[in-house]
Every structure is written in structure tokens, then in C-alpha cells.
Design a protein around this nucleic acid. Sequence first.
RNA 1: GCCGGGGUGGCGAAAUGGCAGACGCAUCGCACUCAAAAUGCGACGGGGCAACCCGUGGGGGUUCGAAUCCCCCUCCCGGCACCA
Length: 842
Amino acid sequence: MSQPALPLESDPLSSSTTTAQSAAVYKADEIEPRWRERWEADRLYATPDDSDRPKWFSLTMYPYPSGILHIGHWYAFAVPDVFARFQRMRGYNVLFPMGFDAFGLPAENAAIRHNIHPASWTFENIDQMRGQYNQMGAMIDWSRQVITCSPEYYRWNQWIFLKMLERGLAYRKAGAVWWCPKDQTVLANEQVLDGNICERCGSEVVKRDLEQWYFRITEYVEELLQELDNLDWPERVKTMQRNWIGRSEGARLIFEVEGTDPLEVFTTRPDTVWGATFMVLAPEHPLVEKITTPDRAQAVEAYVTAARNQTEIERLSTDASKQKAGIFTGGYAINPVTDERIPIWIADYVLMGYGTGAIMAVPAHDERDFAFARTFDLPIRVVIQPDGETLDPATMTEAYSGDGRMVNSGHLDGTEVPASIPIVIDWLEETGRGKPEVNYRLRDWLVSRQRYWGTPIPVVYCDDCGMVPVPIDQLPVELPLDAEFTPTGQSPLVSHEGFLNTICPTCGKPARRETDTFDTFVDSSWYWYRYTSPHDDALPFDPAIAEMWTPVDLYCGGIEHAILHLLYARFFTKVLRDLGLVKHSEPFERLRNQGMILAEEGTKMSKSRGTQVSPDELVRQYGADSLRLHLMYLGPWDQGGPWNTRGITGMERFIRRVYGLVAETVEVDAGATADAETARKLERLTHKTVQRVTTDLLDFQFNTMVAALIEFSNGLNDLKTPELMAAPEWRDAIETLVLLMAPSTPYVAEELWEKLGQPYSVHTQNWPPYDPELARDDVVEVVIQINGKVRDRVVLPADASEESATAAARTAEKIAPALEGMQIVREIYVPGRLMNFVVKPR
RNA sequence: GCCGGGGUGGCGAAAUGGCAGACGCAUCGCACUCAAAAUGCGACGGGGCAACCCGUGGGGGUUCGAAUCCCCCUCCCGGCACCA
């Protein structure tokens, strides 16, 4: 009688084998969702304001809700998450919040293109991205979330603005500003890239005369510059800020002008004023019209118009060494030290935006003035002679800007340059010709934008009262959600009657609302304070709670914010300090920048070329833990580099090995004890690893930290025997390994901690301590060199004396014969490392 | 042009005055397997049978000893660039 074949799953033998195996096999897709739910249910990441632990505020730049997290977001956030978790285990009460920089142009563009409201588009994206952050295993307390496009948040932008208005730190001014025709808005100077390109959309921007809102950041310029010195920030970021602020010391000099007001100039080289043979004004200079003589008027006007309409290409071609363009006004000034009549020219190499918009030209000692003088055949006079050569204006081919002695300079002839500069300034001041002056490149921050999706600027315009601020108790001025988007790109606020028409708070007559909104950099200039009391409805944040959490201990983010965001944030902090809301002056004590993840071929990741890497796909395949490790392991975090997908398998293997180690360990009945030698080996390996992992994390060296973890597990595998696994020493080592992995691989560490029978949660455990004494080797391998070349090596006790080390070295197998017939000239001993015999033939 | 950062095996890298290439990837060999995957063990800068020799972008220097410090050159990346 034939029996039907049993289905596989009902075979008792085969099914039990499967169960035993599956318990020992790592399955990320089973472990990760399970713990994620548990942590969420338990509010494991809730951050209390009242704690007896010291605080640690770890901030990472919040993202723009563009729709989906890419691998760069993971790199920027998962790695700081490791550090935040590490700090939590080290005993800190860690604030590690997250929010969304939710105002901005992409939402409006999506509205126009896909007929979806910016608010819906933004909030859908936020939902999606929050889910992805959770998947990453990020330690975020979402109850503190800040979303800048919610009235709850932006009303405080308006509040801060009104306070700034009161103090004269916000003001309206007409002037030439950058306008982007594509985005239909003005831009801050900082948002215009080289070649007059819009930072956001890449189109060419133009100058327009418009009345705009500004924040008086220049009020704080000296403080913004000086306090950089005390910040623990990457040096290159500080350098970029210093360059941007552009402080230069010099003097303001007054030149009388025939027939009109005097001209003032700023110069860093007042000692060269005897060599000023002409003057140059920027084309936009207000005195151009008055100075220009009637016979020159037509030509000057033509030049000025052309200069103002210069295109990008023409601008790029104006290189300092190339021919200079300009035109003579017909007017003359008087050199204040030589009393000579000198011609006044106009040229676009003088910028209206810097100094006074006018210069004294000293062609002999300034490269640009030299080029201009040669082009227009203007006189050149040498007033500084270098040692050892004699400059002759007739034969000079370039300006001389180095040191030397003053000549042709009246009573100051012979004075040494550069010591001459303060001497000249003093004399000019005493004689009423000028005064010392410090100039900065930094301009006030243009904050108004002709866009819809941003914070409405809370002022109204009344025919009788003029510009009137909206009273604080009427905030927020809400952005109307029933806006109509048209393809013209014009802000819908301009034609929104319901928004536009209001009542003057002062006189009660009909008035018109401001339709401009704030630059989104306003939102990000103080958002971290809001995390400390995200629901406060009396002030932007509760000063007492903020005082407890801030300043931020560690700020992580991309180098692309080196100037704009970080400078504005520093400025706001000083304003908030002066408003009495915070006590400190600097918001971010330590700053660390991550590098950029490139596509595998080393170019920028691009959607159109399909070189983008999807973290979701990698999580599905390998799990978040492996991806986190892989990102840390790519190389130094601040360096970034090309992505490679293959390497992630190594991290998965590592996790699987550790998983196997723990699974095997828990199956063994405890009871045995290890022999002394093995116990010592385990102890040393454990302490060594804790030391390496701890110091690497503190130094932000995540790649070598992961290497130390891998080496630990490899070392344990090598030592592993069935007997040892039953010993308590082994168990300690395994538990330590799991604790050390907890910040890096939060999911699998939690799983293994549970398997080891330890109390939930691994993430609330203390970071394991280490003892450098116990980490130390008791025998060392000492390299023996002859004349600096490695010839042999000997194993010695770590505490071997120099005498015994030398004796051992001399008699080492390959050394003894080599020393035969040689005279030892010198012996160098580096304890525990190296012995070098310097020898010569006898 | 000026200011930073960098150049180390097939690849990512480590070592910041003392054994160059830890650790990982890829590759190759072996074991396990009917087989594959997974896993485990081993090899893995170049030359040489070997003793050894050469080797950290190139050249020079300092040092007992240099990837590491100094000088010159070169290439790559980033920032700034008529700022008076």
C-alpha cells in the first residue's frame, strides 16, 4: 500500500530543524518593526525637561520637506543619532529634536505645476519623511517637532520682527536689489551666486530699484566677527564667515571737488595718498550727475546706462588684469596732501556697495588702478620705493604693493611701509584731512520676498498713518489658505482681496496689508529654541526652559550653510539676548559638518541620471542597522565620498556574526569558569575595545569606531570554545559588545540584549566603563632596527627595562650576526615599541 | 589669482615622527553541499627560488628613523575673487 508523501512542513524532524535554525538567524525585517513599535508605545525617546542628569543638546539641521529622504539625509542624521544615543548612555539628558523647514518656493512651484496646495504638498511630505526617520531608528522625541509653516510657529517670527522694528533693527529702504525674474522675488546678496545666478533656480538675476525690508545685521558686525575665535567650529567655516564679514582697517579721506560737495573715499593704504593721481566713482554714485560737466554729460550717461545693464557674460570677462572700462566726467578733485587737481572718472570696477562707492586711485601701488591708468594713459606716480630697486613709472609693468620707503611724500619721505600707515592716519586726522575707519563687506540682510508660501510680514499701510505695525495681540497674521495660483508666478497674496483689505490698527480706517513674506532663513534663525518649549503660547519660547537646554552643545549639518544660515542664526541669538530671552551670545558651541555622499562614479548624485541611492530599498534588503553601520564605515564623516552598495554586505555579515555569537552563548548553560590566562585575554580585549570605541566616538571617528567593534567580535570568535562560553567572563564580554553596538545598531542591540535576558531597554543602560590599566598588554613585540631598517623583532614583557630590552635585542637571531664586526654608534630605545642600533663598520 | 582640504593596494580606508596598508569590500584557493546560496578556514602592494630588495603624486631637505615635519613642483576637490 503506497503512502502519499508527507508534505514537508508536517515532517517533525525537518520542522524542528527549521525552528532551531531560525532562532539563530538574523532577520532585520522581523526585528526592526517589532522594536520600533515597542519604543513608540513606551515613548522611549521622550525627553523630560526636569532631570537630575546633565543636559546635552544635540541639534542636526532640520530638512526641507522635499518629499522623500535620500541617502544624504541618512548620512546627515543617522550618524549624529549614534552620537546622541552614546551621550544618552553616558548619562546625559539628551535633547535630540527634529522639525521641518516647511516654508519655501518648491511648495509653491508644486502648487502651480500639479494643482495641489502648498500646505497639502508640504504636510504629505512631512508625514512621509517622519516615517522614514523612524525607520532609520532615529532617537527623536516627536512631541517637540517644529514645523515652520504652522501659524503656531510663524506667529513668533512676526513677534520677533515687531520687537526688532521697535528697536530699529528692522527697517524699510529703497535701493538697487537683486531680482530673480523666474522666481519673481528679490534675493539677499548672499543668495546671489557668482555670475549673478539665483541660488535657488539658477537663472540670471537683475538689479531693480525697489523698497524692501532689511534686518540690521551690521549692528552686530564686530561681535559676529570677534566671537568666532571662541567657537569650536571647523576652521574653514570660521574662515568663510570672516571673509564674508570682510573687515578691513584704513581711513576715510576727504577730497574737495571743484564746484560741488566733497568726495569721501575709504582706503586701506592712506600712506599712498601722495600717489593718488585720479579718482574713480561707481556708476551708481549719487554725485555723478553733479560732477559731470555739460560737455561730458551725454557720454557719461551712455556709459552709466551700459554699466547698469551689464550682462553676466560681460561681467565675468572683467578680470582684474584685463582692460578696464570707464569714462572721464570732466570734473576735478583736489588731492588733499599735494593740492594737485586730479581728474574724476567713472568705472564699474568701483562698486557702490562697498566703502563710499568712490576711490582715490593710486596706480603705482594698486593693481586695478594701474591697469586703469595704463588703459586711459593717466599719470602714475611712485610714492613707495622697495629696497634694492628703483621703480620708474615709465617702465613699470605692474603695480608695486609691497613694503618699502615713502618717497615723493613731503615731510614723510623715508618712513618705512607698512609702519607708515598709522603714522599717516594720525597726521591726516590732526590736519583735518581724514580719520581712521573700519570697513566691512557685510551688508544688512534683505528679508522681504514677493512670495506666497512664507511668513506674512505683519505691517499694514494706511493712507493717513503710513506704515503701521500689526499690534502683538493681533498676531498671527495668518497666511490665507484659499489662495489662487496662476502660472504667471506672481504671489497670490497680491490679488487676494480678503487678505489685502484690513483696518488700520491706529485710526481704524481701511488699510492695506503688506503682501511680502519673510525669507525662509528667518524661520531657521531661531527654530532650535522652539524645540525647548514647542507649545508655549506666551513667548517664542519659555526663557527658563531655554536657559536650561541652550546653547546647543553640538550642531551637525552641511557645509553649504557655512555662511547664510549660521551667520543669521548667530545674529538672531544676539537679538534675542538683547530682548532678554536668552543669556548667551552664541547659539552653537560645537559645529561639525558632514561631507557629501557622491554617486558611485564620484559625481554628484542625480535624479535624471539615475545615480541616486534609495535608502528605503537598502533598508528593505539589509535593514536599517546595516545601513547605519555602512554609512559610518564609508570613511571619515566630515569627508563624505562616493557611495558603494557592495560594502554594505560586510556590515550585514558582521551583525550576523554577532547575532550568532549571542545565540550560541545563550544556549550554553552557565557554570564553568575560564582559566586565568584566557580570562585575562578576554578582559584586556574588552577594555581595549571600550576604550577605542569611546574615544573614537568622542572624536567623531565613526569609521574606526566600527572597525573596533568588528575587531572585537572577530577576537571573541577566535577565543570562543564551548567551555569558555559557559564562563561569566565570556558573558560579560558579550554583554559589553551589545552595549557598545547599541548607539550604532539600535534595533539588533535591543534584540540581543533581550536574548541575553537583560532588562529592557538596552538604550537606557549605562555606557560601559574602561580601565586603561586593564586594557594594557603585558607582553609587547619590540621591533629591532639596524640603521633604521627593520631586521628582527622580539617579544618582551611590557615593563621590560631598557637594559633587558637591549640585551634581548643584541642577541636576537638576525641581529647578533649583523652586529658582528660593527661598531654601535648609537642605541635608540622607544619603550615597548622599537630598538634601533646605529652602526658603522669597525 | 588668493585661501583651505586632499593624492597611500583592484576599491573604501588605517597609521600624524617609530613594524605602511588595521578593518571592510572585491578577487582567488579550500572545506561544507547533489548543487547553489549562506557560512567557515586561508591567501591577497610589487619584484625575487630565497636571503632580501623596492614601495604612501614627483623632486630635494631635516632626523638614528618620515605617509607623518620643512622647501620646491604637480594633479584633484571646495571656498572666495575688481572689496579700494
